[in-house]
């Protein structure tokens, strides 16, 4: 009998990330009123319901985004942040809530190619934009040496802030594929880790760069 491997492998985790992306609804078939939970078959029915039942309340808005390569058409409340929409509407949990106000970097995503704090970004402002989350990075084999290096070097303890660091690291490598240690420290200085794992991030990213150039990351 073949022994099970201890824990969750890189491939398992990336497959789960892929499954989360695949499970994102491309379009909401049923639209729920956020004030009374009544359900409707179309956005037009919902707005009519608002006029009739909740006059004076601001109705949800339509939003189209490309998230991790998939087009999504959503109906969201205008006050929701991008982070909230990713979690509540699309089921993606990689962007984390830590500070609520753009100080910790845990919610970092890449919006139209730039690292962006999703807790400080209104989803309604992302209409027509492309969003890349850590799940999207995980499913791209190019970045698996980076994830592997993070895990081999324990560039995490509790792991809560780690996806935000990884997204910031990926954004750094997008614009600077051969960063110095100082480049890394500066690029990650907007991310807070309560477990104090900072020195590990430089180590992991520098190692990942090596493997990304020459190939052969140990577990990727």
């Amino acid at each position: 009998m073949e022994a099970k491997k201890a824990g969750i492998s890189l491939q398992d985790a990336c497959a789960q990330a892929g499954a989360r992306i695949a499970a994102m609804p491309a379009k909401q078939k049923i639209v729920t009123c956020p004030l009374c939970a009544e359900q409707f078959l179309s956005y037009e029915e919902l707005t009519a319901h608002y006029l009739a039942e909740h006059p004076g309340c601001v109705a949800p808005v339509k939003l189209r985004m490309t998230v991790n390569g998939r087009d999504c058409s959503l109906v969201v409340e205008p006050h929701l942040t991008l982070k909230e929409v990713l979690q509540l509407h699309l089921g993606l949990t990689g962007a984390k809530q830590m500070c609520d106000r753009g100080q910790c970097g845990s919610c970092t995503v890449i919006l139209n190619g730039r690292p962006t704090l999703s807790c400080n970004t209104l989803a309604a402002d992302c209409d027509g934009k492309t969003v890349e989350t850590v799940e999207g990075i995980a499913v791209n084999p190019k970045w698996q040496p980076l994830i592997d290096a993070y895990c081999r070097w324990d560039a995490m303890q509790c792991g809560y802030c780690t996806p935000g660091f990884l997204v910031a690291a990926k954004a750094l490598l997008d614009r600077n594929p051969r960063p110095t240690e100082q480049d890394i420290k500066e690029a990650l200085s907007g991310n807070i880790c309560i477990c104090g794992t900072y020195p590990r991030h430089s180590q992991a990213i520098l190692e990942a760069v090596t493997y990304m150039v020459k190939g052969g990351a140990p577990n990727a």
């Binding site: 398992d12 985790a13 789960q16 949990t93 995980a138 895990c151 995490m156 792991g159 780690t162 996806p163």
Partner: peptide, 26 residues
């Protein structure tokens, strides 16, 4: 050294769910 944690890959890729990450329909 350098043995990845049992759940590190889940934590790094964002698939690990913490209290704030859980949602239930309805």
């Amino acid at each position: 050294a350098n043995l990845p944690g049992l759940t590190s890959y889940a934590m790094a890729t964002g698939v690990a769910k913490y209290g704030t990450d859980f949602t239930v329909p309805g």
